[in-house]
């Protein structure tokens, strides 16, 4: 796999420091958001642990020896949450967050399409099968985070297009998609 191609702003040292001017900061944060989203999409990352992420190349540019501060990243994530592009996980702590380079509704649509394409309507599919099974290989939701997957399925359940059910041991989950496709 080729490496992620960072935009040129990534090599601009002040980009890693929160700018005091409000307007500048807004632009800076938006740029960061787009980098985070495309980076996570590229590596299929669904959940960022903030302090861990700060040590990775995403927020630490070794070539110019600049890294983002935790508070700055938290402010960026807050902005993403406002835009529906992220969510704290767990909700009351600001240590890690889901990154929605696709929103749960969008995931729901892709899964629903995949179900129709593979004729899985009205049959039982396990969550493991959706996220790690051979049938989902090559789809964007292959290796999806379990919690994000559940959120996406929840969208379908609310629409009445699917129903989740628990296996006898209650740890494993399955889902039945109804015949809409």
């Amino acid at each position: 796999m080729s490496a992620f191609d960072f935009p040129s702003i990534y090599n601009f040292p002040p980009f890693f420091t929160q700018q005091p001017n409000e307007a500048t900061w807004q632009t800076q944060a938006q740029l960061w958001i787009s980098i985070i989203l495309s980076y996570c999409r590229f590596y299929k990352i669904h959940r960022l642990d903030l302090s861990d992420a700060l040590t990775t190349e995403l927020f630490y540019n070794k070539s110019i020896n600049r890294r983002l501060k935790l508070e700055t990243l938290q402010s960026i994530i807050k902005m993403m949450i406002k835009q529906g592009l992220a969510e704290w996980d767990p909700p009351n702590k600001k240590t890690s967050a889901f990154i929605y380079w696709k929103k749960p509704e969008e995931w729901a649509t892709s899964i629903s399409n995949w179900v129709s394409e593979n004729g899985l309507n009205n049959s039982i599919v396990t969550l493991y099968e959706i996220a790690h099974g051979e049938a989902s290989e090559g789809t964007e939701f292959h290796e999806i985070d379990q919690a994000v997957l559940l959120k996406a399925l929840d969208v379908l359940v609310k629409k009445g297009e699917a129903q989740t059910l628990q296996a006898t041991n209650a740890e494993e989950m399955g889902v039945k998609f109804f015949g809409t496709g």
């Binding site: 396990t126 296996a167 006898t168 399955g174």
Partner: peptide
């Protein structure tokens, strides 16, 4: 009403598939 759409067969199939997933993981 939603509960009724899941039949006992569905549950049995799910258990089998879960078992299959476990074997795959193993």
């Amino acid at each position: 009403a939603r509960e009724s759409k899941i039949t006992p067969q569905d549950r049995a199939i799910l258990d089998l598939k879960v078992q299959r997933d476990r074997l795959k993981k193993y």
